[in-house]
Amino acid sequence: MKNILYLFIAFATFKSFAQDTIQSHQAKNHIGELFCVTGKVASIKLASDGKTTNYINIDRPYPEAVFTIVITNEYLETLKFKLEDIKDKIIFVYGKIAIYKNDPKQIPQIFNPRWIDLKK
């Protein structure tokens, strides 16, 4: 009985994520909301010496990127893959979509997402 309950919870969780999955170009319409965003990694900018912020640009490289994932070095240590290994791969990222300093001219982004997964 316990296994059936766990299976039901897992199915309900996956189902809810599926309903909240959007393409990267749709992110600008969902500022302030939790969503799973998917797209192809176009470019990566690793934190340089003395800096702590890494950037993953989705679908197009910076400055034409339509969506960016911002990850601190500290958070990056908790991930199970290296940023260098995800170039040109399709990823799913879940978190709150925002824009930097509430400037509507900025690229939509997720800062330190709740999770990132590669398309299998």
Rank of each mutant, 00 (worst) to 15 (best):
I56H: 00
H30K: 12
Y55W: 14
C36V: 15
A27I: 06
I44L: 05
F17H: 12
V37S: 02
T21E: 11
K15S: 14
N29R: 09
I44M: 03
N3I: 06
T38I: 03
E64W: 00
I90Y: 10
P108L: 04
K51C: 05
K96L: 08
A98C: 10
L79W: 11
D49H: 12
N29Q: 14
K96G: 07
A65V: 01
I99P: 01
T53D: 14
K80V: 07
V66S: 10
P61S: 08
W115D: 08
S24E: 07
F92I: 04
K101V: 03
N102A: 09
E64C: 01
I116L: 12
N29Y: 11
D59I: 01
Y6I: 08
D85G: 02
K45T: 07
T53Q: 15
I110H: 01
T21K: 08
K105C: 08
F8D: 06
Y94V: 09
V41Y: 00
M1I: 09
N54A: 07
T13K: 03
I90F: 06
K80M: 09
K28G: 00
I110T: 02
I4A: 15
V66T: 13
C36F: 06
F8A: 15
R114F: 08
K96C: 05
I91M: 03
K82E: 13
L5Y: 13
R60Q: 14
F8G: 07
E64T: 01
A10P: 04
V70S: 07
W115G: 08
P61K: 08
D59W: 02
V66P: 01
I86H: 01
I31P: 02
P104I: 10
F14K: 08
T52C: 03
G95D: 09
S24L: 03
T72V: 02
Q26T: 03
L79E: 06
I69C: 05
E74M: 05
G50F: 06
M1N: 15
T21R: 09
K87C: 05
K96S: 07
I69P: 02
A47S: 12
E84F: 09
K80N: 14
Q19F: 14
S48P: 03
G95H: 07
A65G: 01
I4C: 08
V66H: 06
Q19A: 10
Q23T: 11
A18T: 06
